[in-house]
Amino acid sequence: MPHISVRNLTVAYDGQAILSDVSMDIPDRQITAVVGPSGCGKTTFLRCMNRLIDMTNGARVTGQVLIDGEDILAPDADLISLRKKMGLLSQKPQALPMSIYDNVAYGPRLHGLRDRKQLDALVERYLRMSSIWEEVKDRLHTPASRLSVGQQQRLCLSRGLAVEPEVLLCDEPTASLDPVSAQRIEQRFTELKQDYSIVLVTHILRQARRLADYIVFFYMGELVEHGPADQLLNDPRDDRTKAYLSGTIS
């Protein structure tokens, strides 16, 4: 049973289809790269998986996204435990308006962890896991907004990991980073896939080549092709995939 399974997912915004009839399974404990030209529905696809699509006014979602067999698009789905399960790393790092420490402790505190020692240990563990601990350990209680963009993105990764998700949803997580910071985030991903399923939306084909085990290609709201990275990159079946890989459509 695959962890995430998408069935006939269709999203329309003010009557205009953004995603049409997408069905696929997302493999466990692998990095799945979602690629395609901008505006093809990659981000919308990702936002369906943690229901942040609800925040978009006028979006109509039909179909099913099954996580462990449970349809998360059902109106009575438990959003809190869903979002706890699906960590998010957004395109532009969004540090919450609080200290570095509180950013990481934010989720666990909401979910009921109060013990100071446990929180301390947890904050350190996840800051280490996103390799930012050494840079911030002496100023944990200063505002997170003072960190550089690259550091903020790693902090956001810690914050996402701290609620112990099972899946990481990443929306072009290196797009606003300098090359060194981007590389650091990428390194983390290759380690993290031991324990997490990672869905990585990216418009950088080379990043998909470097990281992905499995690739999903969207074009104008349509799921064109998906398969293991080797097969899709080296032997694409659809002409549109070929055109995208060779750079004639972007």
Binding site: I80, K84, L88, S90, G107, L110, R159
Partner: peptide, 24 residues
């Protein structure tokens, strides 16, 4: 909006997001 979403994404409720993020 992205800041609100960052809070919601770790499982905060709407009110928790208002209280801890938006109002702050």
């Amino acid at each position: 909006v992205a800041m609100r979403e960052a809070s919601l994404a770790v499982g905060a409720t709407r009110w928790e997001t208002v209280k801890h993020v938006s109002v702050r």
